[in-house]
Simulated assay, not measured.
Amino acid sequence: MNKTELVNAIAAESGLSKTDSKKALAAFISSVTKALKEGDKVALIGFGTFAVSERSARTGINPSTKKAIKIEAKKVAKFKAGAELAEAVK
């Protein structure tokens, strides 16, 4: 499902117009992004949790040259499914 299909699904489920559904999705994405940038986590009970995790620096291998390279430490966004979502997907 891409973004357009998701907007259409939100509109169908909620009874909102496609324009309002697109605005709601954009607001959700913006709010989650802002919270993660500030170091907060976003927990939606039954759905899942968005959080920031730190990856430490490590040594990797360049597949074309087979030489060791240093991979910098960085922060990554992670999502952990909640119990209801995990059960629904089973």
Rank of each mutant, 00 (worst) to 15 (best):
K74A: 14
L16M: 05
S53E: 11
K75W: 08
K90M: 04
A57N: 05
G39P: 08
K22I: 04
K18R: 08
F50P: 02
K34L: 12
A86G: 13
S53V: 12
G60T: 04
N2E: 02
V89E: 02
E84A: 15
S31I: 12
A43G: 07
P63C: 09
S17C: 01
T33I: 09
A11K: 02
I29Y: 08
S53H: 14
E13P: 00
K90H: 06
K23C: 05
G15R: 03
L85D: 07
N2W: 00
S64G: 10
A73Q: 01
K18T: 00
V7L: 00
E5Y: 08
L6N: 09
K80P: 09
K66N: 05
K3A: 01
T19W: 01
E84D: 15
I45C: 03
K34E: 13
E72N: 08
V89K: 06
A73P: 02
D20Q: 14
F47S: 10
F47Y: 12
A68Q: 11
K41T: 07
V52M: 08
K74E: 05
A51P: 02
A51V: 04
L44Q: 05
A9C: 09
T33R: 15
A86M: 11
D20K: 07
K70T: 10
E13D: 12
T59I: 14
S31C: 13
E54L: 12
K67E: 14
A77Y: 10
K23Q: 13
K66Q: 12
T19V: 13
N62Q: 01
V42I: 13
A35L: 08
V52W: 00
K37I: 11
A81R: 07
A43K: 15
L6H: 03
R58Q: 11
V52T: 14
V32G: 05
K22L: 09
A27R: 10
K90D: 05
D40A: 11
E13T: 10
K3G: 03
K80D: 10
G39V: 10
K23W: 03
S14R: 07
S14L: 08
L44C: 04
S14I: 06
A12C: 02
N8R: 12
P63R: 10
A88T: 12
T65H: 02
T59M: 09
A24D: 03
T49G: 09
A26C: 02
K23E: 10
A26W: 00
F28D: 07
A88E: 09
A88W: 06
A81W: 02
F47L: 14
G48I: 08
A77C: 13
A51Q: 15
S56K: 13
M1Q: 07
K34C: 06
V52Y: 00
K23T: 11
L25Y: 06
A11C: 05
V32M: 08
T4N: 11
A12H: 02
G39H: 12
A88N: 13
K66I: 00
A43T: 15
A86C: 06
S14D: 04
M1N: 05
E87K: 15
A77Q: 09
G60Q: 04
I45N: 06
L6D: 06
A27F: 10
A77W: 04
T4H: 04
G46T: 03
S64N: 14
K22M: 07
V76A: 07
M1V: 08
S31L: 15
L36C: 10
